[in-house]
Amino acid sequence: MLARTAENLFWLARYVERADFTARIIDVTSRLAALPQSYRGAGGEWESALAAVGALNAFNASFSETTESNVVHFLAFDETNPSSIHNCLEQARTNARTIRTALTAEMWQAINSGWLELKSFEERRRTGEYSGIESILPFLEFVKSVSLDFDGAAYRTMLRNDAYWFNRVGLYVERADNTARLMDVKYNVLLPKSETVGGSLDYFQWTSILRAVSAQTAYHWVYRESVKPWLIADLLILRKEMPRSLIYCYDNLARFLDHLGKAYGMQATSQRHTRMVLRRLENATMEEIFQEGLHEFVTKFIDDNNRLGGIIAEQYLLI
């Protein structure tokens, strides 16, 4: 396959996943921010939202005030923010258009109609039909549905060959990054001591994390007990049955990269690196992670995951 095609498939999946994650972050943050002060702890929800999507610096460069409407605009629609939902969907569509023939009709349709719908949302916003946080909710639902459509189309219609594998690799690299960032921003409320210190004050912070990854119900199925911060960390890092956990992402990365290695008859740095990260996750326990420091663990993971992106590019995409 053309290196550029692989690169586009990889990034296409990343952009769609990122749009979805950003939508979820806006969603849970607006819920949290709507709570009375006494329920939500120290405040600064919108700052953490920006931090979670890695856009804090970019935001501060263009806005002086961190108000809800500024942040929502920046994360959802701002064309100057390279990771805004607008830009993610726009980029995804551009990537898809460049490699039309490598996509199935269903995938193209999911992306293209998502893009058209985005245009019409934005048009309605311009005419003032939509404004305020209330009106943003249908938009966020729409963004999530685009990623569901696209992902479903890819899963149900693509041939299981290198095109599919590159697409999945992009998806899981992005998802692992998102989950890790979410934890990195919230790590202080996930530390074991915070239960005694903060008490129920952090309860809504915890549930908002679960909500961000659609895992409130999953949590109860897995643990069958009330929400405890270290169990949330466990769920998001070490539980293979949780589709957004770091270990699940790496389990899949290892599998899809293996497929690529076999198909091309060569295992190289990306396969080795992935297995190394996976092994570390498989051998880890929550006790050890907390002992070493959750923040340190997550930061290292983010670095390793970024490095994987670079290694994949080096091995397959830039020649």
Binding site: M1, L2, A3, R4, F166, L317, I319
Partner: peptide
Amino acid sequence: YMKTTEGP
């Protein structure tokens, strides 16, 4: 040559 995922 064209640049492919399997090399030139």
